[in-house]
Amino acid sequence: MEVLLGITGKDFTLIAASKAAMRGVTILKATDDKTKTLNSHTMMAYSGESGDTVQFAEYIQANVQLYGMRNNSNWQLSPSAVASLIRHELARSLRSRNPYHVNLLVGGFDVTENKPHLYWLDYLAAQASLPYAAHGYAQYYCLSILDKHHHPDIDLEKGIELLKMCRDELINRLPIDFKGLLVKVITADGIREIEL
């Protein structure tokens, strides 16, 4: 019952992930961080098979940074380029002997075109660019809320309010406590964590 949520607005992308690290029905940790920072304006949240998730995320993190270093230290990959790179790696893994079972949300803010970005990727490497997205059971509870209340030009305050609505619904409906959400926001200024 891992929760991944992402919402874009006028000038930001919000990424939220549940803080519970679970194994079967046991909660091993209540302060887990299922996100990775990829570069100054791009990050991702991941869920799926334990072991695969962190392994794949760290691989991606290292390779996105390597790509930046190899090319130009002042220049870095745009969110769409990062998402394509991740999809490529995941698609390659899909037809290997043991594929990664990892679902992802990639959020970012493109500083050149001044636009927020959110990409949804499942473990099959199906990719979609979306205004708001979720993974796991959260899809069934949160997408309908966001369908009704989301607009592309909302401000951060409204985005956080939507996230709270989603969290409250999940607390109400999910049978296992997911220990709240770790929330990060990406704006033109970079990535920062916020308290919900």
């Binding site: 949804w120 499942d122 979609a128 660019s129 997205a133």
Partner: peptide
């Protein structure tokens, strides 16, 4: 449409 079984994920694919 882009879906996962019965759930629609994206309507711009």
């Amino acid at each position: 449409r882009l879906g996962m079984q019965a759930l629609t994920v994206s309507n711009n694919f």
